[in-house]
Amino acid sequence: MGGTSLKKRILTALLISALFLAGCSSASTSETNEKEYKIGVLLSDTGLGDESFNDSAFRGLEKARDELGILFDYREAPDGDFESQLEELSKQDNDLVIGLGFSVQEALEKTAQNHPEQQYLLIDGVSELENVTSITFKEHEGSFLVGMVAAMTSKNQKLGIIGGADVPVIHRFEKGFEQGAKYINPDISISKEYANNFGDAALGKKIAENQIKDGVDFIYPAAGFTGVGAIQAAQEKHIFTAGVDSDQYFVAEKAVVTSMMKNIDVAVFNMAEKLVKDGSIGTEVYELGLAEDGVGLAAIRNFTLSNEQKSAIESAKEKLTSGKITINLN
């Protein structure tokens, strides 16, 4: 119940912000650009208010609206009917249609084949279609750093990770976190569980509570809004946790030590900027990691790292970027 009301408050704030600023941007756009570029976006399953993946993309579009003068519209598909929403966006004369998340890939590719002249952007998946540009992230690199921090903060040397689904993108979070923790302590224990749901905060809280009963004192939830419940449970039980995708410190200000920043907002803004500049975003496949500012760590809070620990994290960043540290994703 608490998780649902929290999501509603966040969604309301996002929509009020979007409506208030829309009028401010439209007037300036016509004065500065000959063409008003339009972007349509289909959000992933959990929609706005997830405090994570979707909200980050939405921030990127708001920035593109305010700074570049683009117009944007969005759709949600909580029932999983991605194809009809994408079809609707494709018929609206948008210069670019964005699909968020691995779960929309099949529907996006079907729609792209039906509209070969339309430009599409797929985030968190790779498509071979000529009119689809793909962006993926090296979540394992940022998660490696979170694993290091978790091992440094843990008293019990028992960590937990909660995945939203048993899929490759979540495996990258998992593998990076585990290997980062073991980089600090090879004998550390890590509990893993898949929620098979990205939108159930109550379920995330329940899973986290079970892990905490087993002695886990740091939880890393890569599970969208389900993870919000796990973060809240960590605070209630007085253990540490980390956010994902966005800086989730405000969700539990006494428990969140850092967040694995997956800079979807930056990627979306950069694509909008390329669209305005070139009239097209091309057909490249982008893979964004530490070197490309695609992932990284939020500020460290609630725990003071020693100078030695800070140096170890900075050294790991350099080694991950240069390839001296490689993460096994198998």
Rank of each mutant, 00 (worst) to 15 (best):
S26A: 07
Q157K: 15
N263P: 03
D293A: 14
L145A: 10
R301P: 04
P221F: 03
L121R: 00
D245A: 04
K63R: 15
A201V: 02
I70K: 09
H140W: 02
P168S: 13
V146W: 03
F173S: 08
V97Q: 06
A195E: 08
L159V: 10
V104I: 15
L290P: 02
E178Q: 12
G176T: 04
S44F: 13
I184Y: 02
E273W: 05
F218E: 06
G40T: 13
A223M: 09
E51M: 13
E83S: 03
G199C: 05
E117Q: 12
E88V: 07
V146D: 07
I10M: 06
E106V: 03
S143F: 00
G147R: 00
E128H: 04
D166V: 06
F218P: 15
V97T: 03
D95N: 15
F72M: 04
L42S: 09
G2M: 12
A181K: 05
G227C: 01
S25H: 10
E318F: 04
D73W: 00
N210V: 00
A252M: 01
T321D: 00
E128M: 04
A316P: 06
L86H: 03
K237T: 01
L297P: 13
V146M: 12
G142S: 03
A298K: 08
E62H: 07
V41H: 02
N210A: 11
D66M: 11
V228L: 08
T153Q: 13
A291M: 09
A13D: 05
M1L: 08
E308W: 09
G180Q: 08
I207Y: 01
T46Y: 02
S84R: 03
L122V: 12
R172G: 01
Q309F: 05
K192G: 04
D66L: 13
E31A: 11
F137E: 03
T304I: 12
F20V: 15
K63I: 11
F198A: 02
G160R: 01
N263D: 06
E62A: 11
V149P: 06
V295H: 07
K262W: 05
N156M: 06
N185S: 10
T133R: 06
A299E: 15
N263L: 11
V276R: 08
E308N: 13
E31I: 08
G47C: 10
D95C: 13
L6D: 13
L129A: 13
